[in-house]
Amino acid sequence: MIQYKTAEEIELMRISAQLVSRTLGMLAKEVQPGVTPLHLDKLAEEFIRDHKAIPGFLGLYDFPNSLCMSLNEQVVHGIPSGKPLAEGDIISIDCGVLKNGYYGDQAYTFMVGEVSDEIKKLLRVTKECLALGIEQATSSNRIGDISFAIQAHAEANGYGVVRELVGHGLGKKMHESPEVPNYGRRGSGPKIKEGLVIAIEPMINMGTRRVKQLRDGWTIITADNRPSAHYEHDVAIVDGKPDVLTTFDFVEEALGVLQSN
């Protein structure tokens, strides 16, 4: 059952969402060659706890860390390691917090030093997929309209759209109904209504859409070992339109990027 949120609940969720965004913004300037994902994970946990919140992923379904950190061909759910980041890597950092009884959840794919133009295009298109999906999150549409917009743009650029993992509702639980696939048909799925809060998160592969899971029981990688990108925003439906609760502003200010989404 979908749990629609009141205006008051949405404002509490905005606080949680903004803390996730601030955490990613803090990490942005730390993502450098030679830094280990475990170090970034520790920084994030300390930052979240310093802001009177709980890391949303730590212990969730027995996940061992505060961040999901997925490198290169890893799609999502990567476990932070002690192996230093290298020039040319990309790393998706997915962060969650629990504050005031509500979750925030956001992901951003960072470049480590200089990356190839091919990788830059993958990241740009994946972020565009997120923006196009958010545009469809209106009370006149259905979840499938979000899904179709993401899939159409990714596949028009020759990329694979992951089927096995999806976006989701968000609230007092990290994962609520409805599921928000990144592929689908226009006019399909649940009706989008006032008070719906969802996490929209395109997971787009440079090559095949197929994925597989590593033996650690968590990390999902592309079946062809080509890179994957992942971006995520929390979106509430307010006055029939999408109200983005998270922001990339803190990340992009830290990275010196003028434009923001």
Rank of each mutant, 00 (worst) to 15 (best):
D117W: 10
L130V: 03
V97P: 07
P181L: 06
D62M: 06
K241A: 07
R142P: 06
L24A: 09
D89T: 10
S260T: 12
L19Y: 04
L170K: 04
I150R: 11
R215C: 12
A131R: 15
R210P: 00
E30R: 09
E176C: 06
E118M: 04
K172N: 14
L132Y: 15
N141K: 13
E11R: 13
M203K: 14
I15M: 05
D239M: 08
I93E: 04
D89A: 09
L19G: 04
G195T: 10
R49P: 08
S70V: 06
M13K: 06
P227E: 13
R142W: 04
T219V: 00
G189R: 03
D41M: 09
S21G: 07
G184A: 07
P33L: 11
I200L: 07
N261I: 10
Q74T: 15
S188G: 15
Y183K: 09
A44H: 11
E253C: 11
V20N: 12
V20S: 15
E114S: 06
I10W: 03
D243M: 07
E9Y: 03
A229R: 04
T138N: 06
I15H: 04
P55Q: 05
F57K: 10
H153K: 13
I237M: 02
E194M: 02
V180R: 00
S147P: 01
L130F: 03
D243H: 02
P202H: 02
L170Q: 08
I10H: 11
T208K: 07
S140N: 15
V197G: 12
F57Q: 03
D224R: 11
G78T: 03
A199N: 12
V238F: 01
A254D: 10
C95E: 10
G88N: 14
Q136L: 03
V211Q: 08
V197A: 05
K191S: 13
P178H: 01
I2Q: 03
V125G: 05
K120R: 15
M1F: 10
D105E: 11
K212S: 04
I146R: 05
A229G: 01
E73D: 13
D105S: 01
A236L: 10
V125E: 00
S116C: 06
I48T: 11
T219W: 10
D234Q: 12
F148G: 00
T247S: 15
N72R: 14
S140P: 03
L245T: 00
D62G: 07
D249E: 14
E232L: 01
P55R: 01
H153V: 05
Y108N: 08
V166E: 08
E155A: 14
V162F: 09
P37Q: 02
V238P: 03
I198E: 09
L255H: 11
W218G: 10
E128D: 08
P64E: 02
V244H: 05
P181A: 12
G158Q: 14
R49N: 03
S81I: 06
M174W: 02
R142N: 15
H168N: 13
E45Q: 15
R14C: 12
K42Q: 09
R209T: 01
